[in-house]
């Protein structure tokens, strides 16, 4: 049974259709990259899977309909890392990461978290490599450090499924590579990850499979080399891509804008 299965997903806002007939499946341990131009529905897709948007169609997690689970049950099985960094208060990294344990806490006041929660926080700090930053205030972190701290918050949920919407957008190239490695490691530990990203080379190198969205529909889905071919990229983005390989891995560089058909 697939970890995540999505069928006939459709999202409308008024008369506008943001997503149409999206179907996908994700196995445990798999990293699925969602790519596509701005406005193609990538964020809408992960939000709909996370049940944060009204939608039509079915989303199954380990055979359970996500829409039928209670908010708390859902929150334990699915972690969502949003695109917008909504954190307004300069709390410490450790306090931020501890918020990921909320679905597991039984209406307490937040102060007396159980030993299990503390261990999960430690594992998350460790996995996202932010232990050294634990007492730092968020407003003293760099963009890349902050991105890793937010990732640690999502990892602390210890949910079998992680939905991450552009977690590397604010990071420098080194942090981007680190975060991709961390997400891969998260998959190796058995989790499934749906990742929205723009960098085609990172998508090609790190993701097991890719889903290419274009105007709210799935243009292609499959292994990176199948999805990222010249004709499809031309249709989706209206760009010509320069590609090659280095040490057996593909790289793709957006080269020039072209007219779409």
């Amino acid at each position: 049974m697939s970890l995540l299965r999505v069928e006939g997903l459709e999202v409308r806002v008024g008369a506008r259709v943001l997503l149409r007939e999206v179907a996908l499946a994700l196995e445990a341990g798999e990293l699925l990259g969602v790519v596509g131009p701005n406005g193609s529905g990538k964020s809408t897709l992960v939000k709909a899977i996370a049940q944060l948007l009204p939608h039509r169609g079915a989303v199954w997690l380990d055979g359970d309909s996500l829409a039928r689970l209670s908010a708390r049950q859902r929150a334990r099985r699915l972690a969502y890392l949003g695109q917008d960094d909504g954190v307004r208060w300069p709390t410490s990294v450790a306090d931020l990461v501890a918020l990921g344990r909320h679905p597991w806490q039984s209406g307490g006041w937040g102060g007396a978290s159980a030993a299990r929660d503390r261990e999960a926080v430690e594992r998350a700090l460790d996995a996202a490599e932010v232990e050294a930053l634990r007492e730092r205030r968020l407003d003293t972190l760099s963009g890349g450090e902050r991105a890793r701290a937010r990732l640690a918050r999502a990892l602390a949920v210890e949910a079998p499924l992680l939905l991450a919407d552009e977690p590397i957008a604010a990071a420098d190239p080194r942090h981007q590579l680190r975060i991709m490695e961390l997400l891969r490691a998260h998959c190796t530990r058995g989790a499934g990850v749906v990742l929205v990203l723009h960098d085609l080379t990172l998508a090609s190198r790190f993701c097991d499979r890719l889903l290419l969205l274009h105007q709210g529909q799935v243009l292609a889905q499959g292994r990176p080399e199948q999805v990222l071919d010249a004709a499809k990229l031309r249709t989706a983005y209206g760009i010509e891509v320069l590609g090659g390989s280095h040490q057996g891995e593909r790289y793709l560089i957006p080269w020039r804008c072209v007219e779409t058909d």
Partner: peptide, 15 residues
């Protein structure tokens, strides 16, 4: 406490 993350992430944590 959880809302400090923003509305979408807070909702995803069951708030």
């Amino acid at each position: 406490e959880v809302l400090a993350l923003g509305e979408a992430e807070a909702a995803s944590l069951g708030v």
